[in-house]
Design a protein around this nucleic acid. Structure first.
Lengths: 371, 371
DNA sequence: TTGAAAGCGCTAACAA
DNA sequence: TTGTTAGCGCTTTCAA
């Protein structure tokens, strides 16, 4: 067992106390900043700590303090560029606030997700940040949410009394579709629609409303999976290209799906953007690679991480009765995977049409304050 | 404080005991599989647990069991495709073994890395998996390594009495360089050499020895940073292209650097592979993207993760006196970023030359057993 | 099979 | 300013 070797080596507060000839409460005091203790005893104790190589046992401390300063991070898969980027920012900010991260994958599965929540709960995390795997995550997890402060990332819980931070997905696809239309596209296919998350429902809606508002008929190619991986996008796109070609632009529901489209298009000899324009969503790091150069909708990931951690820590410190809904604004990142359908049209006209339409998106969240 | 709300809601083993009219030791027995308890009392207790919504407090259990079933994962940045992929596999395997992961970034910095180790140590993790930031990580961290089982990933500690798993980096660049030479290249630039890790030293050596062995003069472009990000690769490549063009192929020390080269090349109107062949290392997920299609050296990431976790768990369960060095075999993944310098040469000749040379790489690890 | 009690390493209330 | 002591929630002897 690991027990034996730890025991023989571990030096506790008592060892220090004995060595320094003080009670072990005094050692504890010497170690905690604002406590009343004579400066020379503190120094002496600290010196002994150092000499003996004492380090605080945080699990023992957690026990009595009733806080672990541990945050559970539950997400479908860290091996997803959007999520690993989010995780990166979340960990940084958490660390700056003296919280550590327990990482748990839900593998795009509701049951696994519930297990993950139970796990972090059992480990007494002070709070949970979850990137949910589906819309059903909320009802499914509801019963645990009163146990510990939680914030949902990237899933719009609408009027649910639970904190979340998300980008305005509706607005994102709305401005995306308008951009495509401003480029002259009238046959725009929305690729990878799925109804299992609010995020994706809103994205599909934003696209659809933009089309309708401009007299363009919406077209959909639905996703058969919740795992938004490049591979799945690729498989779906192959099927798409086999079945139909009645569009001049593809608006993908995520960048990973867009990359899958790119891969399949390559295979089918379809040039992007010459034959088909392609628009993504997320602006993952790889969207900006040369040759890829994916035009996409940017999610402000660092800002979202910042808001998420701060909401959470706020709830932890204030008994978490309140909840906040934060909807951040997405922006269009123009690169080169989209091109005008009619090259003879002057650039200025595109800009003009774009400006005209985008300034009042009738988002379901028009009332919310952006960051 | 979070204390108040937790207290009022948390249901402990005592509550269950009271409700079930047993001592709380009995509740503990009911909950642990192999203990002697009458089946009907067990059922009764379990029923009460369920009714009251009791869940084990793992921090309390950790205290007495002296094991947390927590593994510290310390790495430079989760926002790095190689590392997030490794993290993904590590978390999966750990979870299947009932271990959870504490994630800590070292931000490519020795001081931060030491802090991270101290942090997870303080939190009493049962073991640590570290992807070190530099060769100095080992001497720097040495003093902590007797506290808890540790395994190093992807840094060859040579004869150091500490466990590690790595790919045979020397062999990797060796076969890579030979491949390039088999394609007819004689002016191959090794891009991103750095001497701060054994990994990168060995990669540079493998390349160099392959060159020397075939009468080709090695050429280097050194990295000025330890952070192997695409951006840094891009900056370095811009400088490279500004200064010199005396090569027909670039062998990059990592895929991320290769992607940076790709980006800079694009900017400079240099076509890959028509003007310059490009070879990477790692085979990150994005290397296989269409248009990117990077020929590279594959690291068997899933296998490495598996070995790392299993070595670690083995050490945890066996008092960790022993250590193991595991060096896995890299393989060449041919895609389309490299092409023959002389297109008129028959494919068969290339294959022949390749087969001829690669079969006895004089790796410093020839004596090690691969997985 | 069950209960009583000790104790894991620490903090905090209370006394001195 | 310092020491004594209780107790966080749990597991595990030792008795009964």
């Amino acid at each position: 067992m690991s027990a034996s070797n730890q025991t023989k080596k571990t030096v506790t507060i008592k060892d220090v106390a004995r060595e320094a000839n003080v009670s072990y409460a005094t050692v504890s005091r010497a170690l905690s900043p604002g406590s009343s203790i004579r400066e020379d005893t503190r120094q002496r104790v600290l010196e002994v700590c150092d000499r003996l190589g004492y380090t605080t046992n945080y699990v023992a401390r957690s026990m009595v303090m009733r806080e672990t300063r541990l945050l559970g991070l539950v997400l479908p898969s860290i091996d997803n560029p959007f999520m690993s980027e989010m995780a990166y920012h979340i960990e940084c900010i958490a660390r700056s606030l003296d919280y550590s991260i327990m990482l748990c994958s839900s593998s795009y599965d509701l049951k696994e997700e519930e297990k993950a929540i139970n796990l972090v709960l059992g480990r007494q995390v002070d709070g949970i940040i979850i990137i949910p795997t589906a819309r059903d995550s909320y009802p499914n997890l509801k019963k645990y949410l009163n146990k510990v402060p939680t914030v949902f990332v990237n899933e719009n819980l609408m009027e649910a009394p639970e904190s979340y931070v998300t980008v305005d997905n509706y607005r994102g696809t709305f401005i995306g579709a308008e951009y495509l239309m401003a480029l002259g596209h009238k046959r725009i296919l929305y690729f990878g629609r799925r109804s299992t998350t609010a995020t994706h429902t809103l994205r599909a809606m934003g696209y659809q409303d933009a089309c309708l508002q401009h007299g363009v008929e919406p077209m959909f190619f639905d996703s058969y999976t919740d795992a938004t991986t490049i591979t799945n996008g690729y498989e779906m796109a192959r099927q798409l290209f086999r079945e139909r070609q009645d569009f001049t632009a593809i608006q993908a529901s995520t960048d990973t799906f867009a990359l899958g489209v790119l891969q399949a298009a390559d295979e089918y000899g379809i040039r992007i953007p010459e034959d088909i324009s392609l628009l993504g969503f997320d602006n993952i790091r790889y969207a900006q690679l040369p040759k890829i150069n994916l035009t996409t909708i940017e999610q402000p990931k660092a800002a979202m991480a910042d808001v998420a951690v701060n909401i959470l820590v706020g709830k932890i410190q204030n008994d978490f009765e309140a909840y906040s809904h934060r909807v951040l604004t997405p922006t269009l990142t123009k690169r080169s995977s989209c091109m005008p359908i009619d090259l003879s049209r002057p650039e200025s006209e595109i800009e003009w049409r774009l400006r005209l339409s985008t300034n009042d998106v009738h988002s379901p969240f028009a009332h919310e304050l952006p960051l």
